[in-house]
Amino acid sequence: MEQNKAKLEIDLNKSTRAFINFTVEIDQFEMLLSYMRIGNSFISENISEAKERLIKLYDNSSEETDFLKIDPERFLTMNYYESHLSRMMYIRAIDNFITYFKDVLAEIVIKKPQILKSKDQERLDFILEHDTMENLLKSISEKKITELFYSGFTDIQKYFYDRLGIKMFEDEIRTAEINLLIKQRNLAVHNRGKISKEFITEFPNEDFIEGLFLSFKFDYVSKINDVLYNIINNLDAKLSIKFNLDQVSYQ
Rank of each mutant, 00 (worst) to 15 (best):
Ile47Ser: 04
Asn21Cys: 09
Thr23Cys: 06
Gln184Thr: 00
Glu2Tyr: 14
Ser41Asp: 11
Glu82Phe: 01
Glu63Thr: 14
Phe208Ile: 08
Ile108Phe: 06
Ile178Phe: 11
Tyr250Arg: 13
Ala237His: 14
Lys223Thr: 09
Ile70Met: 06
Leu105Cys: 14
Glu82Pro: 07
Ile209Cys: 07
Glu107His: 07
Thr132Ser: 14
Val221Leu: 00
Ile115Ala: 05
Lys183Met: 09
Glu107Leu: 05
Asp59His: 08
Leu187Asp: 00
Thr132Lys: 05
Arg87Leu: 06
Lys242His: 08
Tyr58Pro: 06
Asp71Val: 09
Leu32His: 10
Lys102His: 14
Ile127His: 10
Met168Ala: 10
Ser249Gly: 02
Asp120Met: 07
Ile173Trp: 09
Ile178Arg: 04
Ala237Thr: 12
Ile178Cys: 01
Lys197Glu: 15
Phe19His: 01
Pro72Arg: 01
Ser62Arg: 12
Ile156Cys: 02
Thr77Arg: 13
Leu239Ala: 11
Ile10Ala: 01
Leu235Asp: 04
Asn230His: 05
Gln121Cys: 12
Asn79Ile: 08
Ser83Gly: 06
His190Gln: 11
Phe19Ile: 01
Asp27Phe: 10
Asn46Thr: 07
Tyr150Ser: 13
Gly211Asn: 02
Arg192Val: 02
Val227His: 03
Gln247Lys: 09
Leu57Glu: 11
Glu177Lys: 08
Ile200Asn: 10
Ile182Arg: 04
Met78Gly: 08
Leu54His: 06
Ser240Glu: 08
Ser215Pro: 00
Lys138Cys: 00
Ala188Ser: 12
Phe208Gln: 08
Leu105Arg: 03
Tyr159Arg: 04
Asn225Ala: 01
Ile10Gln: 06
Gln114Leu: 12
Met133Pro: 03
Ile195Arg: 03
Asp125Phe: 06
Ile91Val: 14
Leu85Ile: 15
Tyr80Cys: 04
Val24Met: 14
Ala188Gly: 00
Thr16Trp: 07
Glu63Gly: 05
Phe218Cys: 06
Leu137Phe: 08
Tyr159Cys: 03
Phe22Arg: 09
Phe22Val: 01
